[in-house]
Nucleic acid binder design. Structure first.
Length: 599
RNA sequence: GGGGAGUUAGUUCAGCUGGUUAGAACGCCGGCCUGUCACGCCGGAGGUCAGGGGUUCAAGUCCCCUACUCCUCGCCA
């Protein structure tokens, strides 16, 4: 038997043809007389019918078929007449079988191979090859394959070279924790798995390749999230002689192409741009979900203006201590029950908040149900009402205190409310694709622990020229050419224009408190490279897993990765990471030190 | 590293204030059935209640520890 068609393509145009299909038994309905089989391959489902008077041997054998048997059938495509199944793409026809070959029988699967199942993920990951038989996962991975092909085509069309970089490199400090690989040939030395090809791609620019891209795995040994895996795929891009706008238009063109070809959706370009500071103020993070409002309002200055006279020591003291005050409004038409609003407080506390001050706005702008309402001065209350645009019946939520905590709590409250209040449209309902660039973040962040300024992203990002004078005096003021592309609340990519001027580079290191010797020891090869006529350059990396996750509407990043790891970085199918024997460790000059046994 | 949820037939779950032999649906096995497509009907098998310890006359149920999974904060230039 030689396969002639797939299970997804037969229509009434094929009626009368003799066909051969290979696939898996997706469902069976045995009437004793007629036996119906839904045959499945990656392209779809086709109903096959075995009848005793057509092919007695095949019919007899068909009686022994069970779910997930791998089989081949030969037969004639016939119309289903009055029995058309409108739910099936191939529902107009069926194949009347005259021959059946069983390639392989199957044990009963540990969970049903159906589009929608409730089986817990642990079980599904253990039998990943069976989970991957399910149509939603097959389609996600087929879409992902298409995204890869489209990306390569687009990049090559635009003059980019696909160049490879090593996974095993030298550990460089900063950034994510690296996975380390011991070297057998170099006792006691270790490679670091690349957390990204960052330094190599800059060296490609120094080497004069001008436009580089790569669809490449990256490795980061950090705690995992629903949108984070220890190994993940980036579309890595670097360009010479470009401005930020040049990078943006290349990436916008790529994303536009992907959405058009994979979903038939036209996404408008250029994307909206938002200042980093604005994003933090209105949304509490640098990856705002713009599909709904519920924006934060910063009240810090207002509270400071009223000072102690505002009547609310909590707020005033928070501001005095260098903190901030933020509010967001739950509109009256989405009124929360007392229990729901208490639940919000629980959520806020879970994220480090001390509490969640609330105020219900009355007809005359007065506040009720609030610890703030008793002592607040009418003037401050009126100013706040005006600033947040509160209407009677609205509920105003407040956070105040340390900036980082307030932003985190408020950002998560906003997202929680967005979902809870139904502001986020379902995937497939026409959807909304709110792409934007978040631009001009600060170059440095103050690290409370070490009491020093640290690079907010990496130490090779180009500062704004007009901020250069502040490098030595007020590092927090220095903004840089760093940008993130954000979609619906997910950072799907980020990059920067790089520093190519060794003089400015030296100033940045100085501001970071990195000595010349340190810099040399850590990044010597890059610093050397920049001295040999390095071109101005910049680039970006897109998170391919996240793009596929968002584009396909998957529930989890794990659904667009064929063999994902669990939350704790284990592979439940293979058992990785696993033990190796003593001899292997000796060869690597490595000794395992087991953690202390709990008592 | 912190906080939270969960773990009972192959699967999804129920199992109340502790009380005889732990149930249901689907799946599986056997039988019947020629137009089903969530096929139908009859019968059957299937459980270390995650693991360990404790309280109790008695534990799936209460307490403690451990493991694993998920969510979340920190972390992720």
């Amino acid at each position: 038997m030689k396969r002639t068609h797939t299970c997804g393509e037969l229509t009434d145009a094929h009626i009368g043809q003799e066909v051969v299909l290979f696939g898996w038994v997706h469902n069976r309905r045995d009437h004793g007389g007629a036996v119906f089989i839904d045959l499945r391959d990656r392209e779809g489902l086709t109903q096959v019918v075995f009848e005793p008077d057509i092919a007695p041997e095949a019919h007899e054998l068909a009686g022994s078929l069970r779910l997930e048997y791998c089989v081949g059938i030969r037969g004639k495509v016939v119309s289903r007449g009055a029995n058309v199944n409108p739910k099936m793409k191939t529902g107009a026809i069926e194949v009347k079988a005259n021959a059946l070959t069983i390639f392989n029988r199957s044990e009963a699967a540990p969970f049903p191979i159906e589009d929608h199942i409730d089986t817990n993920e642990e079980k599904r990951l253990q039998y990943r090859y069976l989970d991957l038989r399910r149509r939603p996962l097959q389609q996600s991975l087929m879409t992902r394959s298409r995204m890869n092909a489209l990306t390569r085509a687009y990049m090559v069309e635009n003059g980019f070279l696909e160049l490879e970089t090593p996974f095993m490199g030298k550990y460089t400090p900063g950034g994510a924790r690296n996975f380390l690989v011991p070297s057998r040939l170099n006792p006691g030395k270790l490679y670091a798995l690349a957390e990204s090809p960052q330094l190599y791609k800059q060296l490609f620019m120094v080497a004069g390749f001008e436009r580089y891209f790569q669809i490449v795995k990256c490795f980061r040994d950090e705690d995992l999230r629903v949108d984070r895996q220890p190994e993940f795929t980036q579309v890595d891009v670097e360009m010479s002689f470009v401005s930020q706008d040049d990078v943006f238009s290349v990436i916008e063109g790529l994303l536009q192409r992907l959405w058009k070809e994979c979903l038939g959706v036209d996404i408008p370009t250029p994307f909206m741009r938002m200042e980093y500071d604005e994003s933090m103020a209105k949304y509490g993070n640098d990856k705002p979900d713009l599909r709904f409002g519920l924006e934060h309002v910063v009240l810090t200055d207002l509270v400071r203006k009223h000072g102690a006279a505002g009547g609310v020591p909590m707020l005033w003291e928070a501001v005095e201590a260098g903190g901030i005050v933020k509010a967001l409004v739950v509109p009256s038409e989405k009124a929360l029950s007392r229990a729901e609003s208490d639940k919000l407080e629980e959520i806020a506390k879970g994220m480090g908040a001390k509490g969640l001050a609330r105020a219900k706005v009355g007809e005359g702008g007065e506040w009720t149900q609030s610890p703030l309402s008793k002592t607040i001065s009418p003037a401050l209350r009126a100013d706040i009402n005006e600033a947040v645009g509160a209407k009677p019946g609205d509920l105003v939520l407040f956070q105040f205190g340390r900036e980082a905590v307030v932003h985190t709590v408020m950002a998560n409250l906003r997202l929680h409310l967005g979902k809870k209040l139904g502001y986020i449209p379902e995937y497939g309902s026409g959807g909304q694709w709110r792409f934007l660039w978040v631009v001009n973040p600060p170059l440095f962040e103050y690290d409370e622990e070490s009491k020093t300024w640290v690079a907010a992203h990496h130490a090779f990002t180009r500062p704004h020229d007009e901020d250069l004078p502040h490098l030595g005096t007020d590092p927090g003021r220095v903004k840089c050419y760093r940008y993130d592309v954000v979609l619906n609340g997910f950072e799907v990519g980020g990059g920067s224009i790089r520093l190519h001027d060794p003089k400015v580079q030296a100033e940045v290191f100085r501001a970071l408190g990195i000595s010349d010797e340190d810099a040399r020891a850590k990044f010597g090869f890059l610093l050397d490279a920049l001295k040999f006529g390095a071109p101005p350059h910049g680039g970006i990396a897109l998170g391919m897993d996240r793009l596929a996750f968002l584009l396909t509407g998957a529930e989890s990043l794990r659904d667009v990765i064929p063999f994902p790891k669990t939350k704790t970085g284990t592979d439940l199918m293979t058992g990785a990471p696993g033990d190796v024997d003593e001899r292997q460790l000796r060869e690597l000059h490595v000794r395992a030190v087991p953690p202390p046994q709990p008592k």
